[in-house]
Amino acid sequence: MAELLFLHPVGLDRQSVAFLGLLPVRAVTFPGHGERRRARPGLTLADMADEIAGHHTGRFDVVGASLGGMVAMHLALAHPGLVRSLVLACTTPRGDAQVMEARAEATEARGAAGMLDDTMTRWFTPEALERDPDAPPLAYARERLLAMDPGALADTWRAIARHDVLDRLGEIGVPVTCIAGRRDRSTPLPVMQDLAARLPGARLVEMDAPHMAFLERPREFAAAVREHLAWVRGTTEGAHS
């Protein structure tokens, strides 16, 4: 019986999974996020995946949002025995090195507060920010971003800059659901369509949502995860019948 494992976006922590109401579920906090200290220089997304593998046993249906989806790909490639299936939401198999380095430098120069508006407008729709800026998911994201060490955040942007598993996607043989936000400015729909097309046996689910689809539309996102799990069970049972 596989367990559900949630991997969070950059700047947030494992508490973000609470907005989905998915139980039971495990979640981790990446180095430099939440209450965790800044990691050693040069930490990579592959290192983050290795850390997860070093602390968990069994098999998981892994749900990864944004950064979490990138780490989930590394986990499936380096530790395939740990992964039964993947949900990859609003993520990419290759980081844009130029954009990520510029973002890291801006974070170091401007600090968390100076980057907050840019990040929130990239993550959420204008309607959500205007309608209820103090809604719990938005308030949580804002609080976590302001609390994070700018150096640790810059480290993470640089780790994403070095992320590239594009040419290895064909090695991922587990069932995959890609969740795309049609209003996602960070990973536009064509990026997610291409990701799904490159993954053997993947399916694509579109949502009328921004980059933080799981925070702005948690019920719809959770329903997509449950549909994925039902699909995986059917696929697994069919393979053994």
Rank of each mutant, 00 (worst) to 15 (best):
R219Y: 01
V165R: 12
A78K: 12
A180F: 00
T91N: 11
P93D: 12
C178P: 07
R162L: 11
D50F: 03
V225K: 12
R142W: 02
D50S: 15
G11K: 04
A39L: 05
T235M: 07
I172A: 10
P9D: 07
M207S: 13
A230G: 10
D164L: 03
G114E: 09
V83I: 07
P190I: 00
D47V: 04
G234C: 04
G64K: 06
E130F: 01
G32V: 03
A180Y: 00
L77C: 06
A135T: 00
D134Y: 02
A72P: 08
A139M: 02
M212K: 03
A76H: 09
E227G: 10
M207I: 01
R131P: 13
M1H: 10
H33W: 04
A112K: 07
G181N: 09
V25Q: 07
P188R: 02
P24C: 06
H79C: 09
T29K: 07
D134S: 13
R131L: 13
E51N: 06
P9Q: 04
A230M: 08
H79R: 15
L45Y: 06
V62W: 04
A222D: 12
E105R: 13
R36Y: 02
T235K: 07
L138W: 01
L43A: 15
S66L: 03
V232H: 07
Y140K: 00
F124D: 10
L204F: 05
